[in-house]
């Protein structure tokens, strides 16, 4: 299984699309690793600088409809090669969400209220998140603050994460 715990990157906007996550001009790359420097290059978000802000992060917390637009799996791959395997948001576009679990990564949905609270408490601080898949629990910490939020994951999505993705799962089942 991949690592789902570490420093958090907050992206405070809804409808972040896959063209912003990885622009189409980089889709001519045929290795995942070569996408690394281009993650979130075209993200429209005040004060955001992709190379500076992505460095060292493991988890993304964002708003609604994350990953809308193109079907490119290059979007999850660009996160993966930067060490980010967990994205937490209010909601996800279907294909992006499926691509995450198909790669053995996780896209976790929390309520609008929980997401709001996380942004309010942590967005301006250096924040660490630990994902406990046994207890379905997220522990979010910054200096002097700690929040615990439980999350749900379907049996099928968990099987994909445990198998390391859909190819491995499908190959042993069909």
């Amino acid at each position: 299984m991949k690592n789902f715990s570490g420093k958090v990157l907050f992206l405070d906007r809804s409808d972040i699309n896959t063209d912003e996550i990885i622009p189409a001009k980089y889709l001519t790359e045929i290795t995942k690793e070569s996408l690394k420097p281009y993650l979130l290059e075209d993200l429209k978000l005040d004060g955001f600088e992709s190379l500076r802000d992505v460095e060292g992060k493991t988890v993304v917390i964002t708003r609604a409809n994350f990953g809308c637009g193109s079907s490119r799996e290059h979007a999850p791959w660009a996160f993966e090669v930067n060490g980010i395997n967990l994205i937490i948001g209010e909601s996800f576009a279907r294909i992006f969400r499926q691509n995450m679990f198909n790669c053995g990564m996780m896209a976790i949905e929390l309520s609008v209220r929980d997401i709001d609270r996380l942004f309010k408490i942590f967005a301006d601080r250096e924040t660490f998140l630990e994902a406990d898949l046994e207890k379905n629990l997220l522990v979010i910490k910054a200096e002097g603050v700690e929040e615990k939020i439980s999350f749900s994951i379907s049996e099928f999505d968990r099987a994909l994460v445990e198998a390391g993705g859909w190819v491995a799962y499908a190959d042993s089942h069909y």
Binding site: S71, I95, Q98, N99, N102, G165, A170
Partner: peptide, 28 residues
Amino acid sequence: DSHTCTHGAFGAFAAGVGTTDLEVGILK
């Protein structure tokens, strides 16, 4: 390709998927 939904014009179920779904589709 996300615009695979186009083919529903014929009364089909056609969906855009990522590369992993595509890979399993090709193989299985």
